[in-house]
Every structure is written in C-alpha cells, then in structure tokens.
Nucleic acid binder design. Structure first.
Lengths: 331, 331
DNA sequence: TTGTACGCGTTATCAT
DNA sequence: ATGATAACGCGTACAA
C-alpha cells in the first residue's frame, strides 16, 4: 500500500529473473520460442514485482497504440451512447481501447479536434459527427490514419463509410400519407444537427414537391424543454398536424405539448420520431418511430475499422436500413 | 490525397529547417528562449510538412500521457452519459483526453480491466463502478495512479472520493411518509447495480425498521421491458403501493404498468425515481425524483483528479447532495 | 533457446 | 539561442 514507487520496468524484471530483457519481452508477448522453464521463472518475477508493461513504450516500439479514436459531438444523446456502447463492446472484444473526442459546433474547433486525433496516435478513428466536412475528415485520412465515417460520404483507400438508410423510408411514408392527407405534414428542422437530418429533410421536401403537396418546416432548438414550450404556443392556434421530429425527446416534447393542449393523439396530432430509441415505447400513446440499431452500428463501425487497419478485403461502404415501426402516435 | 506516407518526425522538420531537433522541440513546446526568426522558420516547415508530434513519444519522454482513464459499467445509461459528458467537457478544458474502459459484472474481469488501466499508462483514473471492491481500486492506486472513486470510500494519499448524498433524503422521505401512511412502500431491488443502490436500500429499510413500519422489497431486472411486464402481473393482484425505483426508465415502467392497469397515479400508485434525469419530466404525470447533477459530478471528478495529480492541496472527499423534486407521481 | 544492439519519436541535460 | 546526446520502456532483427 505504501507502494508509491515508480513504474517497474522490463529491466528490473530481467535483472531479477537473471535473463535479458529480450526474453522478458518474449514472455510478455507470449512468444512460443521461450522455454517453459524460463517462462515460469519470468512470470513469477513479473507477479512478484507487479510489473505492467507500458502501453506507451510498446506503442512507440511497434508504432501501434491499440487505440481507436472516437469523435462524437457529445455523449449526451441516448442514440449516441447506444452506439458508443456497441463500440466499446466490440473494441474490447478485438483488443482495442477507445479514446474519446468531442467536437463543438465551431468549425475552427473541429479542425483542432482532428489534429488532436492525429497527434494522439490512435490506430484508427471513427467519426460520428456529420457536421464535419469531408475536407476535415480527409485531413485525418491523409495522415494515413484509417477512418470510418458515419453518415459522411468519402471515397479513399483507408476510409470506410457507414450510412443510415433513411431516404427510402421517408419517401414511402410521405408518399403513403399523401394518398390520404388527413392533415398537413411538418418537418421539425433543427440547426446544427448534421447532414443526416439534412438528407432526411431533403427527402421529405422532395417527395412533397414532386407530388405538389403542402408541407411545413418548423424550426426548433435541439432541446426538450424549448421544443415543448414552442409547441405549447404553436398548438394555441394550430390544432392539427403530422410532425416529424429528429429524436425521441423532441417527439416527446411535441406529444406532451399536444396532450397538455387537450389535442388528441393521433387523431388531431400525429408524431413520428426519426431516431427511435427505447424511450419511444415509454410514452402513452407510444411514439411511432424509425428504428435503427445504433448499438449494432457502433459494433460494425469498429469491426469495419479494424478490417481497414488490417488491410483486409472488405466492402468499405455499409448501409443500415432504418425500419418504420408504427405505434400509437400515428394513424 | 495520395499522401499515405509515414508519419513525419521531428527529425525531418529539423533537417528541412536547418536546425537541430532540440530546437524544433522547443518550438513545439513554445519555449520562449528561441528566437522569433527561427521560430517562424520552423513553424513554416511544420506547416509545410504537416508535422504532428506523436503523443506516444512525448508521453514516453515525459512519462505523462495527458490522458485520463474512465471506468464505467456501460455507456448505456442516461445518467452515466450525462456524467461522461461533464467529464469530456472538463477534460477538454484542462487539456486531457479520455480513455474509456467498461467493466462487466464479472469480478475476475474487473481485475483485468484494472490492469488494463495501469498498462494503458493514463495519468489518472476515474472509477464510476461501485460494484468494484476497494481491493480492486487500491490495485490501481498502488501503482501510483491517482484515482477518483465515485461512490466508493477509500482513504489514501492519491485517491479522491465523490459521494452521492442520498441517505438523508431517503430517510426524510420515508419518515414523512410514515407519518401518514397511505399505502405500503416498496423498494425495487435490482441485482448488480452497485453499492449506491445498496446504501439507499439500507437507508430505506433502516428507517422502516426503526419506526416499526411495513415495507416490501421487490426484485426486478434492470430493464424497462422486463420491469414493465413484471408490474403488469404485479398490479393484477396488488392495486396500491408507493414504489422507489433506481432509474427513470424503471420508474417509467412502473408508471406505465400502473396506468395500463387502470390504476390511478398518484392516488393508487405512487412512484419515485432515485436517479432522476430529464426523462422524469416527460411522462404524464411527471415522475417525482431525486435530482443529482451528473454532468456537474463528472466535471468535478475530473477537476478533483487533476488536482490530485498535481499534488495540489484539496479536500479529497466531495459529497453531492441529491435533491428531492416532487412532481405528479407522488402525493 | 537466449542475448546484444539498435530503433521508435520525443524531451531534457548538458555544453557551446 | 542553439546543438549534441542521453534517457524514456519496449520490440525485434541478428548474432550466438
């Protein structure tokens, strides 16, 4: 317990075992060309001294850090932490550690983060911030850091891409709805929510334009409380609508505002959450949502990245289709 | 773009700038004893070559990694990701990176994770997994890795502790309730949820025992769906109760089961969530909860850790009081 | 099977 | 103000 001494190094293990440090190194790395006898001897000393190899030195010697950098806008969204969870599990399975980087909405800052990723000497990086421009991502890739970009489209040898397949689904939903338009459809537009939301919005608008039907775009903050308050106001004058919201908590804000305004869901107000999580099940009525398995996506991202790192042959573009799950909040 | 060359090193920068690598190092580290002229010259070359220092080599040379290890059971809880968010922000502010480690419920595995933390050569670690025993934590601390343990009680020079203050609040609530006992109180017991939950349960039981009042302990899985189904069954026979649940989603499970069983909340069924998040606001009725600012706690943990790392004088024990917020789910 | 010696990219301690 | 040179802890050809 009073053991506040400095790190035990491979030298001390070698000395006390009466072998060279090369042999100790071999023991650590489970080299099979070392006799069981010395292996045991060295392992004993390692245990006795409590020796732990330094990943820093190992990394420098092998120029591998067994570390994956993860860039996210913030850990504070349920769907992101679901993905993070998938990544940690798969990374653990494959022997990698995760290093976390967060971006802000500031472009200049984003570049700094990319540079930090490079400096940090990770073996590869996963970027889940589709506000970033390709230029920024290529900055990393150009340093020959293998990359997996989520919802960014890049073509390069050491870059993989994972896409959320939403457009098809959105078009179907809008098209279906248009056939029998009970009420006006609104898309909840949030600033700074990335390219995926933009893509979805575009699919929404395109379908309406093509069919020459009405639609509305409502701007809102990416916050439950703010959105709830906005919609309490909104529902004072407008009593009907079909609303597409980005995340569950925004959908919940609209749902609660509708219910608290004595509107009927789904008769008067219909609500669809685009990135549904388990919380979509917890409201009454439950919220219809697009389901996409973020845990699985996180795991796949890590898997794809390691394949790219190992120069394995793989399809470097993966698309995960979202699935529309109808629940009580839509007709 | 075709730039798949190896890392640019300090040597190449030195050569191209016509200075020694010592000077380049000084420029990188903003040493003020280098002439503005050469500083500019070197910086130009750095930019031209796209040189980025290797954190690995820097770490080896300085025996500092500017990295903090974070040990959590899983990123998959809202309250944990709130905390994680506080940690990333504060760490960024202080110039540290976060390295993520997850534990499982397996004790043997836990020790492995601790060893990984040591090997990974982080400058300090924050442990938010109060299932771990002090023995395991001291393993890290004994390697002179500064530590902040959350909801674990340890006394050592390089260890800080952050506590959630719940007992007092719980006792008050139970005591208040006992004065006018409308219905029986139940504590929802989940296995493997750590020491904090055990502490709270103990405070709950103790208060009841002291007052010689009835109470119930219900076991449940740490899952929304499972808990919901369990309580749908439960409410077939039992029509009343005051339930204390660990997290919002468990509280929501009970709430929904009650409502779906045509029981009145809070008249028949009262519900309290122990670790309340924003989701407690999103149900109807809203869920009364204990509020504790996990973001703030995450930030404080990082701050405390860095102080310990820098040998600054600080109180190494911080307690965050939880606050009872009464909402519609209790009378 | 084991040991020697060099390299990994950087910092830091000397000189100059 | 700048330049050699020795660490930092480990992996790995190469030699023995």
């Amino acid at each position: 317990m009073e053991n506040l001494k400095n790190r035990v190094t491979i030298y001390e293990v070698a000395k006390m075992s009466g072998v060279s440090l090369a042999t100790v190194s071999r023991v650590i790395n489970n080299s099979d060309i070392v006799s069981q006898k010395t292996k045991d001897k060295v392992n004993d000393v390692i245990k006795k001294l409590g020796y732990k190899p330094s990943a820093l030195a190992q990394g420098l010697a092998t120029s591998k850090s067994t570390t994956i950098g993860v860039v996210i806008p913030s850990a504070n969204y349920v769907y992101i932490s679901n993905m993070l969870n998938g990544m940690t599990d798969k990374a653990k399975e494959l022997g990698y550690d995760l290093r976390l980087f967060t971006t802000s909405h500031d472009r200049g800052e984003a570049l700094k983060v990319m540079e930090k990723v490079i400096t940090s000497h990770v073996d590869g990086a996963i970027i889940f911030d589709d506000e970033l421009e390709n230029e920024e991502l290529m900055k990393i890739a150009s340093y020959s850091v293998p990359l997996v970009a989520i919802n960014n489209d890049i073509e390069a040898t050491n870059v993989g891409c994972i896409h959320f397949g939403y457009e098809h689904n959105i078009k179907n939903i809008v098209a279906d709805y248009i056939k029998n338009p009970h009420k006006e459809m609104y898309f909840i537009h949030s600033n700074n929510c990335g390219r995926l939301l933009e893509r979805i919005e575009k699919a929404f608008v395109d379908t309406h334009v093509k069919n020459n039907t009405n639609y509305g775009i409502l701007s809102s903050d990416d916050s439950y409380t703010k959105t709830y308050n906005d919609f309490m106001k909104f529902f004072e004058s407008t009593k009907k609508g079909y609303f597409l919201a980005y995340r569950d908590s925004l959908a919940m804000a609209i749902l609660n505002a509708a219910l608290d305004s004595n509107l009927k869901v789904p008769e008067d107000v219909e609500i669809l959450s685009l990135i549904g999580t388990k919380y979509a099940l917890m409201t009454r009525p439950q919220i219809s949502s697009m389901h996409i398995d973020l845990y699985q996506i996180g795991a796949s991202a890590v898997e794809l990245l390691t394949k790219i790192m190992n120069k394995e042959e793989t399809d470097k573009h993966i698309t995960f289709a979202s699935e529309f799950v109808k629940r009580g909040s839509t007709l």
